[in-house]
Design a binder for these strands. Structure first.
Lengths: 198, 198
DNA sequence: TGACAAGTGGAGTAGCGACTCCGTATTTTC
DNA sequence: GAAAATACGGAGTCGCTACTCCACTTGTCA
C-alpha cells in the first residue's frame, strides 16, 4: 500500500498524509461511529477532502483500512499475551481489555462484529488472523482448565462483540463482564437441559 | 395518541392509516435497520409521504413509536411468562425468545440497547416498564435458585442487548446463548479473583 | 344531503454527504 | 536548478432524504 498505481514508491508527503488520514479516521469513527462524514475526517487530519479520496477512493475503503488496522492491533495484543505464564489469566485479561477499549470505540465493536463469522471482503485476510490469534490464546487456557472446552474462537469473537456492544451502550459493563466470565469457565457436571427455545 | 390536536377523536381513515404506517415502519426498520428511509415506509404502508409526516412529524418520532411498541410487546411477554409454574424456566425461555427475535430484527436490538440504562425521552415511560417486567421475571427465578442473586434487571437488559447483537451479526447464536445462560446461573463458591482488568 | 372540518398525496424545497476535477504546489529526477 | 511527475486543496456536482405546502378527497354531523 505504499506504492502508486504505476509501481513507483509514494512521494514522501503523500506517505505522510496517508498516515495522517488513517489516524484521523480512526479517531473520528471511534468517537462518532462509522457514519461520521469524510469531510470531518479530512478536517481532523488537516488535509483537503481531495486528498482523502486520493488515498481511499471510497468511504468504504477508508472504513475497511481503519477496521483492518484495529483488528491487526487486536491480533497483535492477543499474540503478545499468548506467551504469558498463566494461560487462563492471559485469556481473561485479553477479553477484559478488548471490552474496555470497545466501550469508547464504536468502530471496534463494529469491526469485531464483522470479523465475527462471515469473513467479508472488508476483513478478508485479517478476520482469520484475529481468529488464529484468539485461538492461540484460547486453547492453552482451555487445556489449563480455565475456560470451558466446548467452544472455539468463533464463539469467543461473537461473545466479544456482544459484550462490547452491551458495555458500550448500556452501563454496568463490569457486571456484564462478570457474567460472561462465569459463563466461559468450565461448567461442572451441570447437565442442564433448559428446554428454552422459541 | 388517538386524538387530534384540537381534542377531537381521529377520523376513522386517519386511525386506519396511522396503524398501517406504524406496522410498515416496524417491518421496514426491522429489515433494514433504523436508517431506512421514510419514503420506503410510506410505500410499504401504501400511503403518501405527507401522511406519514402528518402522523409522525419527524422521523425520530416515528422511530420512537416503533421502539415503544416493540418494548411494550416485550414487557407484555415478560409479564405473561411471570405467572408460569417454573420461574427459572420462564426466565430462560424469555431470554432465549428475545434473542431469537432480535436476530432477525435489527430494530429490536437497538431498542434494547436504548432501553438499557439511560431512560432517554424516546423510551421514557417504556424503559422502566420493561425493567419492571423483567424484574418480575428475574426475582422469582433468583429466589428459586435458577439465576444468580447478585444481578438486577439492568444487567439482564444489558446482557440481552449484547447477546442479541452478537446473535444478529455473527452466527453461532446458540453457543453464545449457552455461555450467557451458564454465566447467569448461580456460581457456587468459586471465589475467583481474576485480576483481569486493563 | 350538503357544508365544513379533517385528512391525503406527492411535487417541491433545503441541506447534507460522497465523490470529481483541475489549477496550483511540492517532490523527484537529471 | 529546471522539467516532469506526482500530489494537494477545495469549489462544484449529483443524488438522496427529511420535511413542507396545498389543491384535492373523504368523513362527519346536522
Amino acid at each position: 500500500m505504499t506504492t502508486s498505481p504505476s509501481g513507483r514508491p509514494l512521494r514522501a508527503d503523500a506517505l505522510r498524509n496517508r498516515a495522517k488520514v488513517l489516524a484521523a479516521a480512526e479517531d473520528v469513527f471511534a468517537e462518532q461511529g462509522t457514519s461520521a462524514s469524510t469531510e470531518e475526517v479530512a478536517r481532523r487530519a488537516g488535509v483537503g477532502i481531495g486528498t482523502v479520496f486520493r488515498h481511499f477512493p471510497t468511504k468504504e475503503s477508508l472504513l475497511e483500512a481503519v477496521l483492518v488496522a484495529l483488528l491487526e492491533r487486536l491480533a497483535g495484543e492477543a499474540r503478545e499475551l499468548a506467551s504469558a505464564p498463566d494461560p487462563g489469566e492471559a485469556f481473561y485479561r485479553f477479553f477484559a481489555r478488548v471490552v474496555s477499549q470497545a466501550a469508547t470505540k464504536q468502530a471496534l465493536t463494529e469491526a469485531l462484529a464483522e470479523a465475527g463469522v462471515d469473513a467479508r471482503r472488508a476483513t478478508g485476510r485479517t478476520g482469520p488472523d484475529v481468529r488464529d490469534a484468539i485461538g492461540a490464546l484460547l486453547e492453552p487456557a482451555q487445556r489449563a482448565g480455565a475456560v470451558r472446552p466446548d467452544i472455539g474462537p468463533a464463539e469467543v469473537t461473537a461473545l466479544l462483540a456482544g459484550i462490547s456492544y452491551a458495555a458500550g451502550r448500556a452501563g454496568g459493563s463490569d457486571d456484564v463482564l462478570r457474567i460472561a466470565f462465569d459463563g466461559l469457565r468450565p461448567q461442572d457436571a451441570t447437565t442442564d437441559q433448559e428446554a428454552a427455545r422459541r
